[in-house]
Simulated scan of single mutants.
Amino acid sequence: MRRLLHVSASPRGAASFSRTVGEELAGAVAAATPGWTVTRRDLSHTPLPHPGPDFARANALAPDMRGPAERAALARSEALIAEIEAADVLVISTPMHNFTVPSALKAWIDHVVRPGRTFRSTPAGKQGLLADRPAFAIVSCGGRLGEQPVGQADFLTPYLRYVLATIGLSCLDVLCLEEMNRGPEKVAAARAAARKWQAGCIARAAAALGPGA
């Protein structure tokens, strides 16, 4: 059994371009070969709380120093990390809010990027503790990315690449759906680009997972 985890962050529900393309990719990967299950983590429908004081205290303790209260404070984080660990493919679909990740996705990141659990510090820098796997991100933007004054800055893509690589997920492909608020022609062009990108994602997932995929 192969597993795909789709983490979506848009608050726009069925009207979300990023979520729609993410669902299409998840469905296409699952349909390419038999034996897939898809787990959906909708961060808008079921928002995560941002880590609070109890989480911070428990996270700072070594595992053998944690009691029942500390383990309870980290239980949600452990469940979210377990979803990633169980997945053969990770799909993240998100809008760009104020040039970077939305708050809902940042909360998810803060729960799954943990010292001693998903990464460790070494003299050479942080080392990811999760096994690498194909990861794909669909980013929807209302305007155009690029140099100002025509375009806007993209702090989301480099941040997402860096933070996922920190926990061991370095094989990230990103599709940016630009100018999604600029009319139907722009939307149609972005969707056409998404379909071409999707074909490459399916091939890459199959190659990474081997004959059993």
Rank of each mutant, 00 (worst) to 15 (best):
N59W: 03
A28N: 04
E24N: 14
R57I: 10
N59G: 01
A31K: 13
A26Q: 12
W36A: 01
G27Q: 05
T46N: 07
G27E: 09
G27T: 08
A58N: 12
A26W: 06
D42M: 10
L43D: 01
A26I: 04
T37N: 04
A58Y: 15
T46H: 15
L48D: 06
R40T: 15
E23I: 14
T37G: 11
F55R: 02
R57F: 09
A26D: 08
A30S: 07
A28T: 13
E24P: 02
P34L: 02
H50D: 14
A58K: 10
V38C: 04
S44L: 10
T33F: 06
T33W: 06
V38K: 08
N59L: 01
L48M: 09
G52R: 08
V29T: 04
T46F: 13
F55W: 12
L43Y: 06
L43T: 02
H50T: 12
P34T: 08
P47L: 06
H50R: 00
T33R: 13
N59K: 02
P53I: 01
D42P: 09
L48E: 01
G35V: 03
P49Y: 05
E24M: 15
P49C: 01
V38I: 15
A26L: 06
D54V: 10
A60R: 14
P51Q: 05
A30Y: 01
S44T: 06
P51D: 02
H50Q: 02
L25R: 03
D42Y: 10
D42Q: 00
E23A: 15
H50S: 08
R57Y: 11
L25W: 04
A30I: 04
A32R: 07
T33Q: 11
R41I: 12
G27P: 15
R57D: 14
H45C: 05
G27A: 15
S44G: 14
P47F: 10
E23V: 14
W36N: 02
P34W: 00
A31S: 15
E23G: 15
R41Q: 14
H45Q: 07
L25K: 03
A28P: 00
